[in-house]
């Protein structure tokens, strides 16, 4: 694999499919382990992608995750189909949550998702438009 080549994978995340939430992240984790990627990097990727996958199910209407694995890094692009985030700065604060009670009863919605995704990423970008959707791009380097 040359510097600019990547292995590309796409996952479709379905709205409200809580039972299968995390299966895409598990698949990426297993792929990285088979590629002998450093264990701490695998852990960061797993946590960041899983948080994103959960967000797409509990807050959004589902979407797609595009994963590109390069020799030295992984780039994950999570694109959902709405409802979008009105105030990104507020949403990035630990503890800020709009999750309903039923989501909290499932163990999520503590307002830790986006901050944890950023904390586990080497590069993090979020763009959102109300009524359209949110796109989060995370890059993690293999040390």
């Amino acid at each position: 694999m040359s510097c600019n080549d990547s292995l590309h994978f796409q996952y479709v995340v379905s709205k409200d499919d809580f039972t299968h939430a995390g299966s895409a992240s598990s698949d990426v984790k297993n792929k990285l382990k088979k590629m002998n990627v450093d264990a701490s990097a695998v852990r960061k990727v797993s946590i960041a992608m899983y948080e994103g996958e959960i967000n797409m199910i509990i807050h959004a209407y589902g979407g797609t995750i595009d994963v590109d694995i390069y020799e030295d890094r992984i780039v994950m692009c999570l694109k959902d189909t709405g409802p979008g985030i009105a105030n990104i700065e507020e949403a990035m604060q630990e503890g800020f949550s709009t999750a309903p009670a039923d989501v909290i009863n499932l163990g999520f919605g503590a307002g830790m998702g986006l901050p944890n995704m950023r904390a586990n990423s080497d590069e993090f970008n979020i763009e959102s438009e109300v009524g359209v959707g949110t796109t989060v791009t995370m890059t993690i380097y293999f040390t």
């Binding site: 939430a21 995390g22 992240s25 598990s26 984790k29 852990r43 797993s46 899983y50 959960i54 163990g107």
Partner: peptide, 8 residues
């Protein structure tokens, strides 16, 4: 998701 979380 408890198992998924533990796995991650």
């Amino acid at each position: 998701q408890v198992l998924r979380t533990a796995d991650m």
